[in-house]
């Protein structure tokens, strides 16, 4: 089955991101295909490249990046929701005259149309964080 995941809550504030990452691995372990994890609403904060949680806590950012590297899962971030919350890649930072960037690959900034396509194209879209 083709799955996609929608994450709507910020990491470390809520359980949702942790559960979503575990669910992603469970989906893959069962032999399903996971097309993408889409981050929207406060979920875009999962893409913050400067996140530095204490070492004895789960490293969510590494978790997402490993998921992408090992299983070819796209990490898509809604660009409008991200920009509002100070999350932008190098290109957007340059466009907005900001001195640094806070998002880098494998996270990619995309439009909401990608979420619509995912939701209608995959067999299951599972939401975390409502």
């Amino acid at each position: 089955m083709r799955y996609a995941i929608l994450v709507l809550a910020a990491p470390y504030s809520h359980q949702a991101s942790h559960s979503a990452l575990r669910f992603a691995h469970a989906v893959l372990a069962r032999g399903h295909q996971l097309d993408s994890v889409f981050f929207y609403h406060d979920g875009v904060c999962n893409a913050a490249r400067l996140a530095a949680p204490p070492q004895d806590e789960p490293q969510l950012l590494d978790g997402w990046m490993n998921l992408s590297a090992e299983h070819d899962v796209a990490l898509q971030v809604c660009i409008a929701a991200a920009l509002r919350r100070g999350l932008m890649d190098e290109r957007e930072a340059a466009r907005h005259g900001k001195s640094g960037h806070s998002v880098e690959p494998p996270f990619e900034l995309v439009g909401l149309g990608q979420l619509v396509d995912l939701g209608l194209g995959c067999d299951r879209l599972i939401t975390f964080g409502t």
Partner: peptide, 29 residues
């Protein structure tokens, strides 16, 4: 194709606004 279930009041949070944004994008597609 798409049903948006909106369960938050306006103003207090961005839930409603960001939910409606998906509706508009879906319709535009």
């Amino acid at each position: 194709d798409i049903l948006l279930v909106l369960r938050h009041a306006p103003h207090g949070s961005s839930w409603l606004r960001e939910g409606l944004d998906i509706a508009l994008v879906g319709a535009a597609f």
